[in-house]
């Protein structure tokens, strides 16, 4: 494990390079370039705001629904784009995998970094929106790095699991969009977790994506530190998923070139 980590550090150049190549290739071809990173969450935000605050009134507390939905969407999109791109990535790069030797995890992880850029842009825009709505910056922001770490570890874990399983069984590719769709409705992206009956809420928040989205909202919109009862289980689960995903990926990667 330590040996694997050391080798990954040695190949960090490749990790950045693949992520940057992806970004450059993605944005160079399009007329709007980087604007696309914003267009997706913003347009979804507009649609959901119209549907869920005009047509159907979803109670979201004091903050405007647009901001409420935007945090959820930006966070969710980071997860879903990383997972769908990361899962397919190893199979897509088969040409490279059967021709050169390097730590294979750089391929799915580079997808995570690439969608991380979009996430950062999304957050930058969110800060501007917060200022626009006059939401105050509070000391609760100091747990922001913790939430981000949990989120990234969890995404990395899922991406590693998905990428390795997809090489072994292509069924994963067909299953994934369905899983992501269901998962989104099981996470408080467009509605608040308060709507979940309190009997099930603790169970509901075991989903690290639910915990992360609620925690971000609590920090940015509520100005409150998220409760430890939400963050602690999410941290443990995210860490477990990450470590098991990494171990499983390294365990199966020796066979990748043979299976293709």
């Amino acid at each position: 494990m330590i040996e694997h980590a050391r080798r990954l550090v040695r190949y960090r150049g490749l990790l950045w390079n693949l992520a940057l190549s992806e970004l450059k290739a993605k944005h160079r071809q399009t007329a709007l370039g980087m604007v696309w990173a914003l267009l997706q969450p913003v347009s979804l935000m507009v649609v959901y705001t119209i549907v869920f605050s005009l047509f159907v009134n979803v109670p979201v507390g004091d903050s405007p629904y647009a901001l409420f939905a935007y945090v959820g969407l930006v966070t969710w999109l980071f997860f879903s784009t990383s997972v769908s791109a990361g899962t397919a990535s190893v199979v897509a790069q088969m040409n490279l995998i059967t021709k050169a030797n390097f730590p294979r995890e750089v391929i799915p992880l580079s997808k995570l970094i690439a969608s991380g850029f979009d996430f950062l842009i999304g957050w930058g825009c969110f800060m501007i929106l917060l200022a626009w709505y006059g939401t105050p910056l509070t000391s609760a922001w100091c747990v922001f790095p913790w939430i981000l770490t949990v989120q990234v570890l969890f995404i990395a874990g899922i991406v590693l699991w998905g990428a390795a399983l997809y090489v072994l069984k292509r069924d994963v590719g067909s299953l994934l969009p369905l899983v992501l769709q269901v998962w989104m409705y099981l996470s408080p992206v467009i509605y608040p977790a308060d709507l979940i009956p309190s009997a099930y809420r603790a169970f509901y928040l075991l989903n690290p994506m639910a915990a992360v989205i609620e925690a971000y909202r609590s920090v940015t919109l509520g100005g409150a530190i998220p409760p430890l009862a939400v963050m602690a289980p999410a941290t443990v689960i995210a860490l477990t998923v990450f470590v098991s995903g990494y171990v499983y990926f390294k365990h199966t990667e020796v066979r990748f070139a043979d299976i293709m």
Binding site: Y11, G13, L14, N17, L18, A100, F102
Partner: peptide, 8 residues
């Protein structure tokens, strides 16, 4: 740069 990085 990409190919060089692949070669480590």
């Amino acid at each position: 740069y990409l190919n060089g990085a692949v070669l480590g």
